[in-house]
Design a protein around this nucleic acid. Structure first.
Lengths: 144, 144
DNA sequence: AATTTTAGTGGACAAAGTCCACTAAAATGC
DNA sequence: GCATTTTAGTGGACTTTGTCCACTAAAATT
């Protein structure tokens, strides 16, 4: 088990990293979308026939809140709603071409951010970074 | 430089990790404090004679917002305000004993969270985790 | 000494998110 | 198959969180 000091450094890292990502996320905000709106749009884009409820539960959002976000998206012509063929309570969401291009833009900026984040590092440091992150990812998220 | 796929996994990690920390932070919220309030209280505790403006700028908060948070803290008897001896515009903040014990509680819970986070991992995996995180920390934050 | 900057506060507001109630359809229990 | 319960989606009302602006009084600058 880890020592108090090790736990303390993990907490510090978490704090700093949260802050860093927060700053990065603010910057993505140079799009017309808030952070949560961005997540919702990307979630819809992953799988072009998501229902609102699936989006809400995947992102851990209130369904009412999600409904309003989706309504705004529709108003701004980012998505289409179509009635589900299998469940008439339900709605299928799909991106409009405007939606598609906004998603592309979001992805481009996110990639650019990672690039910026790593631009201070040498090529070999970038590899080190990637490998260390892969270790964390496996340990935390990819356990079978 | 990193490939598109590598960048993409970094983004995935960031997303998942943000989500994980977000969930963890929600849980700390079983205290009477919101996340930002917790950060403010801890910031004050680090250094028991901080001014509001120092807190605000260290945490990147609006000074007016910070002022209100501090006001609430005072009302709830978590901190004391005393006039600065060197600058009469300024205020020195210090924790009351209630404040101290809340800080202790916050720290305890944060440590517990890290513990929980790592409890699925074996001892050697925990070491691996710690080492990988240290690599990231050095690469991102500890460059001289 | 006059001007500008800074610390702190409060009003007014905007943005983000939560909670509750409701409708209509689907699923479940018998 | 019918009655009951659950589920998807929406909207109203509200709280929490955070921003922006204006102001006072003290400090720093010129």
């Amino acid at each position: 088990m880890l020592s108090q000091e090790e736990i303390s450094s993990i907490r510090n890292f978490n704090r700093d990293y949260t802050k860093l990502l927060g700053i990065m996320n603010k910057k993505v905000l140079d799009t017309p979308l808030s952070w949560t709106e961005g997540r919702v749009l990307l979630e819809i884009s992953f799988n072009n026939d998501k229902t609102p409820i699936a989006v809400a539960s995947n992102l851990g959002l209130d369904k009412s809140y999600t409904s309003r976000i989706i309504k705004r998206f529709e108003k701004n012509n980012l998505i289409n709603k179509s009635p589900s063929s299998t469940d008439s309570r339900s709605i299928e969401l799909s991106l409009t071409s405007d939606g598609e291009s906004l998603v592309k833009e979001l992805n481009k900026r996110s990639d650019q951010q990672i690039d910026d984040l790593l631009s201070n590092l040498s090529s070999s440091e970038q590899q080190e970074f990637y490998q260390a992150m892969t270790v964390l990812d496996n340990l935390l998220f990819n356990r079978k």
